[in-house]
Design a protein around this nucleic acid. Structure first.
Lengths: 120, 120
DNA sequence: CCCTTGTCTCGATGGATGTCGAAACAGCAG
DNA sequence: CTGCTGTTTCGACATCCATCGAGACAAGGG
């Protein structure tokens, strides 16, 4: 159902260069909204930083005070935002981060002079 | 009132390196949530891409189908998220983007191989 | 076959959020 | 001072969202 209308390619145009169109803003907002929750942010970080770049739900459930269905819900939101992908391997389902999506977002936020604070 | 608990320095640690703490996840989620709305995203882009890097509310109101109070509300959210700053100059209030905040977010999202597709 | 474990879907509920109109506040021009 | 324009705050309402419990589906072991 409904690809999120967000293709990772060609979307790295930073938003500081020219005004976003309503269409692109809607697509970007969907992804940012997916990141706008502490639980999802921690899930994403937990998956990304896990050994091998993937983790199964059983490893994620123990870290939070959230119930199973809630974890599953957050993973679904991240999946539909195109940030992660899940693969069933036997009994467990392993989730991994899609690096292109994160890189695309980072590109959108790039100001052109990035991380050079003292820079001038 | 209420700094958002988000200091731009030292927060560029990418979330793919190690799991986010609950505290940092909450701070980051607040900023991402501010970006998770098409109107706010367009406002931010409009301000950032405007000549001189700043724009007054009167120039922003005409672009959207939103009422004045709604525009003001979104600007307040962006301001409290530490993404923009407003300065009154005579009758009009000029908003400008805080580049460090965007750069910090981009750093958090950085996957390490960022926008180098042919990678290393 | 049934049972256990892992994961998701469904339905419900309390709280947060986007939106508006009306009113208040801040400058500027008569 | 009085009015006028630009901007924000206030109060209200409809909608969305995070969370949960209960149940369904999938895979493996007796």
């Amino acid at each position: 159902m409904s690809n999120q209308g967000w293709s990772t390619e060609g979307c790295c145009e930073p938003l500081v260069r020219e005004p976003l169109t309503a269409d692109r803003a809607a697509g970007l907002a969907r992804v940012f909204k997916a990141l706008g929750d502490p639980a999802r942010l921690r899930l994403l970080s937990l998956i990304a930083s896990h050994e091998g770049g993937e983790a199964c739900v059983c490893e994620l459930s123990g870290v939070f005070d959230l119930s199973g269905p809630t974890i599953s819900h957050h993973l679904k939101v991240l999946r539909e935002a195109g940030l992660i992908a899940g693969e069933r391997r036997g009994t467990w389902i392993y989730y991994r981060v899609l690096p292109d999506a994160l890189a695309g977002l980072a590109g959108v936020l790039d100001t052109g002079r990035a991380s050079v604070p003292a820079g001038r």
